[in-house]
């Protein structure tokens, strides 16, 4: 990582961890979502174990998408985005580095807290490992896809909900393969590796499509 990327990564990480940053709020939201599920579906431990991986994945999806609305907007509001656009650095790489830092600040804590929350949902150790592993591989895709929505809604005052609406259709494949892989690890006949590798492929595709589309949207947003 050359100098400017390191500087950007460090800045983004510091901002997300310091006062006013949103890193821990995502984990709290995740905890809140997981907590309300048993109130909705009932405290049946067998049922919870059955739907547990799906619940964790949907919680992670919502926590990721709802935490993304300030990804570019904060920089637009204080004028930083203007300077970034004329910095002479490739905007696609800038978006990628920002997403990476955002994921380390908010996505990784979700992955790390998932095993703890799995206990509430009565998951087996194998299922806990599978959910954590699929989240580790899959949540970067959610951040990268969400970055497109964040860039498209960067100029909107209340873009958070619209961001989620725009991005949810694109995150369906991630959800499908993430939950399938977690489920396959527990139920014997279905293979784990097929959906897991497809999930990894989705993350790699998102790492290309996300930054390119988001950079394009950011260029058009400046005025």
């Amino acid at each position: 990582m050359s100098g400017w990327m390191g500087a950007l990564f460090l800045r983004e990480l510091r901002l997300s961890l310091r006062v006013g940053g949103g890193a821990l709020i995502g984990v709290l939201f995740f905890l809140a979502v997981i907590t309300v599920i048993p109130f909705g579906v009932g405290p049946d431990l067998n049922l919870l174990a059955l739907i547990g991986p799906a619940v964790l994945w949907i919680g992670a999806l919502l926590a990721t998408l709802l935490g993304l609305d300030r990804l570019f907007q904060a920089d637009r509001d204080d004028g930083s985005l203007d300077l970034m656009l004329m910095a002479g650095r490739p905007l696609e790489v800038l978006v990628l580095v920002k997403c990476l830092a955002h994921w380390v600040g908010t996505g990784l804590p979700l992955v790390l807290s998932a095993p703890v929350l799995s206990i509430f949902l009565n998951l087996e150790p194998l299922a806990i490992g599978a959910v954590a592993l699929t989240l580790l591989v899959g949540t970067p895709a959610l951040t990268l896809i969400g970055a497109i929505g964040a860039a498209l809604t960067v100029s909107l005052r209340r873009g958070g909900l619209l961001l989620a609406v725009l991005v949810v259709p694109f995150s369906i494949p991630v959800l499908i393969f993430g939950v399938s892989a977690s489920g396959a690890a527990v139920t014997e006949p279905t293979p784990f590796l097929t959906p897991f590798l497809l999930l990894a492929a989705l993350t790699l595709i998102s790492a290309v499509v996300g930054p390119v589309a988001a950079a394009m949207a950011l260029r058009f947003s400046s005025d």
Binding site: F170, P173, V209
Partner: peptide, 24 residues
């Protein structure tokens, strides 16, 4: 312009979504 970016991202994603939904 914003909608054009989103439409094209959708055009790339629709086959992926279709494939994943069929698989699911």
């Amino acid at each position: 312009k914003a909608a054009a970016v989103l439409t094209l991202v959708g055009a790339i994603n629709l086959p992926i979504i279709k494939f994943s939904v069929d698989w699911w």
